[in-house]
Each structure stands twice: as structure tokens, then as C-alpha cells.
């Protein structure tokens, strides 16, 4: 497999995907050589997160069928990684972007998206991300011709991005060795699309989704399905397992990963690795395994959130 760094690229869009897998030698030690643990480093995408894959796919598919065309503005409600992806591909493809975010979102997020020329519309700080979604729907309803609204929770291009890229990359790198794949559920696009491709493989691969154990949690980007609006693209019957993860365990494993493997990842990546460790510990005695945990982004993106930022978005 060639990595993207060896390629001469024509635009930022060509930098998306083909992210590296890195072994976790320190974390593997407890399994005495029976278990290979790999981290899929999605922060190596140009926008710094896994969301570059669905962001680009949603825009390209909309360009192909005319939902996105000259004169349209891209609009969505997101203060997180998807907003960064829209902003950078909007800039690169020549389409202006508007993001609706609650008024009290962190200054760092405003600065990152505005750097790409993105316009920010603020919704009520008291209504959190649901308030932002309601405002986007209202703006789109008032002037439907003006906007292209990808709606990542319902857009089939979101899981398709992973069916076409993440899944094949894992099979190309590990092939028949791969026994387990673990990733968190946010929109569910990553786990659904990757699972669909892995389930086509000739050998069974156990696909495990990680969700926060409780509605009140600190695993940013992940969704507690029982207390959330369930995304239209989420079909849990296609997964082998949905594992509830306590916030503390995800944070602890993320911190262990920083300290022992030397890579500073976000908490949702820590939760995925924590899930892989649980799967490895429950393997029947003597059974071998090769697992991949997907790491959505870097820890730097959350630095203002480590107890230093006041009144963040609910």
C-alpha cells in the first residue's frame, strides 16, 4: 500500500484517505503476542479528522447529480469535525460554506472554520446542537434554492465514503489477518459503511460499535443512541455488537495511549481502543486476533475542553 505522502497530489481532495495503521506495542504486551492491535490514524486526513471522508463524498456526490451547483451555498449544523471538512473542501472546490453553531461554541472552533472563509450563523446558546439543527432547517425552508444542505445524519454518501475507502484500505493492509474492527458511533457513518465492506470479505470479521454508556458523557462526537435522535443511516442489525463505554475508561485509555504509544489522540479514539482491549481480554484462551481501532482525531482539537473552557455547548 502506498501512503499518500509518496504521491504528488493535484488538490487537497487527493490527500483524503489512505491513512496509516500503526501497531500498539505497549498495549499489546498484556496479551503475550496473541493479539495484534492496530490504530487507524484518521487525523492524518487534511482536515485533521475522519470526517474528511464523508465530507468530501457528500459534496462530490451532490456535485455529480446537481444538488450542489454554481450559486449554491453549503449549509449544515455542526460545530465539530464535519464543519472543518465542509469548510476546507468548500474552499478548495469553490463553494461558499455557512455553518450554524450555538453562540457559545469554543473560540478555537470559530477560528478554525473561519480561517477557510466559512460564514458562521449563531443559534441560541441555550438550545445546544438541537437549536442549531432547527435553525438550519428554518433557513433552508425559507430559501431552498440558495442552499445545499447535506444533512450528514441522513445522507447515504456518508457511510458510502467508508464503504469505498476505509473498508478497502483495511482489507488491503491486513487482508485475511483482520479479525475485529472497532469504531465509535456518532452519525454512525464510519461504522456502517466500513462494516458493509468488511462483511463482504470471505472471512468473518467481528464489527463492534462503541457508544457512550450514558446520556451524560464526555466522549465528544459519539452519540448515546437511547437518548438521541437516531440517524436515518444507522442500522444496528448489520453490526455484530454495540458496546457501551464509560467515559472514564475511554479517557483513561486515551491517556495511556498518549503516554505509552506516543500519539496524542482524542477521547473518542481512546474509547475505540478501550473497546478493542475489552474484546482482546474476552478472547477464548489461546485464540489469536488482529484488531483495528479507528482513531477519529487528535487530542489537540479538545485542549480548550480539558476543564479550562467555561460554558461550552450542551
Amino acid at each position: 500500500m502506498t501512503t499518500r505522502n509518496e504521491t504528488l497530489c493535484d488538490s487537497v481532495a487527493d490527500l483524503v484517505g489512505r491513512t496509516p495503521l500503526v501497531r500498539m506495542p505497549a498495549l499489546e504486551r498484556e496479551f503475550g503476542g496473541r493479539v495484534e492491535l492496530h490504530a487507524k490514524l484518521e487525523f492524518m486526513n487534511p482536515g485533521g479528522s475522519v470526517k474528511d471522508r464523508p465530507g468530501l463524498q457528500m459534496l462530490r456526490d451532490a456535485l455529480a447529480d446537481g444538488r450542489l451547483r454554481a450559486g449554491k451555498r453549503i449549509i449544515d449544523a455542526t460545530s465539530g469535525n464535519t464543519g472543518v471538512a465542509y469548510s476546507l473542501f468548500g474552499a478548495a472546490l469553490g463553494y461558499p460554506v455557512t455553518l450554524v453553531m450555538p453562540a457559545n461554541v469554543s473560540p478555537a472552533r470559530k477560528a478554525i472554520t473561519e480561517a477557510y472563509g466559512t460564514e458562521i450563523v449563531y443559534s441560541s446558546e441555550m438550545e445546544g446542537s438541537d437549536g442549531a439543527i432547527r435553525l438550519v432547517r428554518q433557513l433552508v425552508a425559507e430559501d431552498p434554492e440558495r442552499w445545499f444542505y447535506p444533512d450528514q445524519y441522513s445522507n447515504p454518501s456518508n457511510p458510502l465514503a467508508h464503504y469505498l475507502s476505509t473498508g478497502p484500505e483495511l482489507l488491503e493492509a491486513l487482508g485475511d489477518k483482520l479479525t475485529h474492527f472497532v469504531a465509535g458511533i456518532g452519525t454512525s457513518g464510519t461504522i456502517m459503511g466500513t462494516a458493509r465492506r468488511l462483511k463482504e470479505h470471505r472471512r468473518a470479521i467481528h464489527v463492534c460499535a462503541i457508544e457512550p454508556e450514558d446520556a451524560l458523557h464526555g466522549l465528544e462526537g459519539l452519540k448515546h443512541m437511547a437518548s438521541s435522535i437516531v440517524p436515518a443511516i444507522y442500522h444496528p442489525a448489520e453490526l455484530d455488537e454495540v458496546m457501551p463505554m464509560p467515559t472514564e475508561e475511554g479517557w483513561d485509555v486515551a491517556e495511556r495511549f498518549h503516554a505509552e504509544e506516543g500519539i496524542f489522540i482524542g477521547h473518542s479514539g481512546g474509547a475505540a481502543i478501550a473497546g478493542a482491549l475489552r474484546l482482546a481480554r474476552r478472547l477464548p484462551a489461546g485464540e489469536r486476533a488482529c484488531m483495528v481501532a479507528l482513531i477519529p482525531d487528535r487530542g489537540e482539537r479538545y485542549l480548550p475542553l480539558l476543564g479550562l473552557e467555561k460554558r461550552d455547548v450542551w
Partner: peptide, 12 residues
Amino acid sequence: ISIVPAIAGGAG
């Protein structure tokens, strides 16, 4: 007094 999870927004 406000009680708030230390994360921003929902699933990005």
C-alpha cells in the same frame, strides 16, 4: 449553578 458535560455539541 450550571451542570454541563465537558463536551461541545453533539456528534460532529
